[in-house]
Structures are given as C-alpha cells and as structure tokens.
C-alpha cells in the first residue's frame, strides 16, 4: 500500500504511541550525534546535546566503546544503490568502515532489550546491507571489488555496548541473499493482487489494519518489533524543503 500504491493512511501503528514517539526521536538524536562525531565535530559541543538521561547514557556507552577503527576509512550515513531487476535497491548505512582487508558495516540500535542473534540474522536488513555492499561498495575502494569474506555487519546496541552482534559474510551467503532478493522482487513485480497475510498478528502492528478490516486498535509493541513504518519516518531525501 505504501510503496506501490503510495497510499497514505494516518492510523496508529503501535502502542504506546507517545512513548514510541519519544523513543523514536531519541533514537534519531542518537544517530545524529554519532554521525556528527564521525564528521569530526568537537566532542564537548556534542556531549552537551546528549541532554536526556537515556541519550546521555547511550552517548557515554558509545564514547567508552573502542570500535577499533583507527586504520579504517569511514563513511558515516552512506547511501548505496544497485539495480536489481527493474528496480533500484537503496540502503542507508549508519557507518561503513573500509580497512586493509576488512569492510565493516555498523548499525546503531537503541533496542531496550537485547534481541536474539537469530532474529537479527534473518532480518532483511542484515541480508540487504551486506549483499548490497558487495554489489555497490567498490566505489568506496577505487572501484576495486569487495570480497564477501571481508565483510562483517555489526549491530552495536546502545543499551548493551559490550554485546555487539556480529554477522560475518561469505560468498555462499552473498549468492543466496542476492538470488533471494531478485526472486522476491520478481514475485512482487509479477503479482497483480496481494492477498492478506495469514499471520494476523502482523496486522496488529500495521497502519493499514482498518483498510483491510483486520482489527481496531494497535497492539503494544514488543521489543523485537521495530516499527515497520511511521508517519514521522524520515530519510535525508525526505527532509522537507521550504519552497520560496
């Protein structure tokens, strides 16, 4: 509905709405602070912006963690894209670090509970980010191809700074992931109708539940569920410009 039909539906996605909004904004602030840090903004100026208890805690955790990237070239908030079938696949990386024989993908997460490794492993984000970097990341290395075995994706958890979740990569995984993505996109392209999901639990966290007559109220979010999409969701390309 949202991406193919571009159909807005301003219902509540998940509860508690106010708390989720606060978390989401704090998460955005944290991402922004880390981005600013990688751009070289003075630490004292950044630290005073971490002005809520949660944000301050995340920030301190971040500063005290050694990411061991001294010899890496870093690309914060990097957009990469590749053609896949008739479409463009685009990902926005929190940080890509290119080293001599390693390419690291960092993703900052502000989950309240530490997610299970298996849950993250099968997420599309894990599969898309790594495979897309193989496809398109050569431009970061003077057009030298990136070997899947060099790549590792690291979810760094602001609430669990010493328990990052790491996902190395391999050529086999890359081939499997890319083929899977191509297959999924082809299926979506070929599909004229999209039947409603059999797993109605998902509808509890979907904006369009009333459109599909799949319930009244939004469910309370569980930690492992990140919002699928939010009205307030922003990417840099969506930052509104004031026309003059």
């Amino acid at each position: 509905m949202r991406y193919i039909e571009q159909f807005a539906w301003p219902a509540v996605e998940s509860e508690p709405l106010l708390e989720n909004e606060r978390r989401q904004l704090e998460g955005q602030f944290f991402h922004r602070l880390v981005h600013q840090h990688w751009l070289g903004l003075p630490l004292d100026k950044l630290s005073r912006m971490a002005n809520t208890p949660t944000l301050n805690q995340w920030w301190e955790n971040y500063l005290s963690y050694d990411f061991k990237l001294k010899d890496f070239v870093t690309f914060p908030e990097l957009n990469l894209t590749s053609q896949i079938g008739k479409h463009k696949l685009i990902a926005k990386y929190d940080l890509v670090a290119i080293g001599h024989d390693k390419v690291l993908i960092f993703d900052w997460k502000t989950f309240q509970k530490r997610p299970r490794d298996e849950w993250l492993a099968v997420r599309y984000q894990t599969r898309v980010y790594r495979s897309l970097l193989i496809q398109s990341g050569g431009c970061l290395k003077n057009n030298e191809p990136i070997n899947p075995e060099q790549v590792e994706m690291i979810y760094w958890l602001a609430n669990f700074p010493n328990q990052p979740i790491r996902f190395p990569y391999s050529t086999t995984q890359f081939v499997r992931d890319w083929q899977h993505l191509e297959l999924m996109i082809t299926r979506i392209d070929e599909q004229d109708e999209f039947p409603l999901t059999a797993d109605e639990k998902k509808c509890n966290y979907c904006l369009y539940r009333s459109f599909c007559d799949r319930g009244i109220s939004a469910a309370i979010i569980e930690d492992e569920y990140e919002p699928l999409f939010e009205m307030s969701e922003l990417t840099l390309d969506q930052i509104p410009e004031i026309e003059f």
């Binding site: 903004l41 100026k45 912006m49 990469l80 398109s136 050569g138 930052i239």
Partner: peptide, 27 residues
C-alpha cells in the same frame, strides 16, 4: 540502469542549507 554505487544528490540551495544546519547544529 546505472552502475551500482552511490546516489546523486538533487537539492535546492534551501535544502542544502537545511541539511547543513541540521547536521552541524552544535556549531
């Protein structure tokens, strides 16, 4: 269909200014 890689930025000067102010707000 373009070679895989980055993304071209399409901006107005207003958009550029807004992003810069947002990103470099501490300064």
């Amino acid at each position: 269909s373009l070679p895989a890689g980055g993304q071209v930025s399409l901006l107005t000067v207003g958009g550029l200014a807004r992003r810069a102010v947002d990103l470099f707000w501490p300064l």
